[in-house]
């Protein structure tokens, strides 16, 4: 069986990529192994752990539950796009200061989820942060320091 390939054009962190892909290639695999943006991690490939969370047209989504071919003509943001060169984003900086990461494997997905959350919720309380975070599993931290980091980032972003 010859595999049908599809030409796609995807913008990732503002950079346009033209590639051909097999229809079944998961978007997570495309980002990681075709574009070599390996900061997006894969933890479960069934949409539960949240490690592969990216922004698809500006909204957080599980990249393991989409096919690369669906991204044709769309805009994607990944963890590699968060920092401004070496300057960490407010949430990245807060994660560092509050010890919001241990092994760091779930961290890119959490950054993508919670950066979006902060953009639309500038003054969240702890419960709101925990609800927003509940779709990202972390096995190391017990979440407390992540929650601290999000609240710290929110405070700083409010200025």
């Amino acid at each position: 069986m010859t595999t049908e390939r599809h030409a796609i054009s995807v913008t990732v962190n503002g950079v346009r990529h033209d590639k051909t892909v097999e229809a079944r290639m998961l978007l997570s695999d495309f980002i990681r192994h075709e574009l070599l943006l390996s900061g997006t991690h894969v933890g479960c490939e069934h949409g539960v752990c949240g490690a592969c969370t990216i922004w698809f047209d500006g909204f957080p989504a599980r990249s393991c539950l989409m096919f690369a071919v669906q991204a044709d003509g769309h805009d994607i943001a990944t963890v590699e796009g968060l920092a401004d060169n070496d300057k960490l984003s407010p949430l990245q900086q807060a994660m560092h200061e509050a010890h919001g990461l241990q092994c760091g494997y779930c961290t890119p997905g959490i950054l993508m989820t919670m950066s979006h959350f902060l953009a639309s919720n500038p003054a969240p309380d702890e419960q709101a942060v925990r609800e927003a975070l509940s779709g990202n599993l972390c096995r190391c931290t017990g979440y407390q320091h992540i929650v601290d980091a999000v609240l710290l980032a929110a405070e700083r972003m409010r200025g």
């Binding site: 943006l37 390996s38 900061g39 997006t40 963890v79 920092a83 960490l88 994660m95």
Partner: peptide
């Protein structure tokens, strides 16, 4: 942290 936070 720096490497882990930036996907590097």
């Amino acid at each position: 942290d720096q490497r882990l936070l930036t996907g590097q």
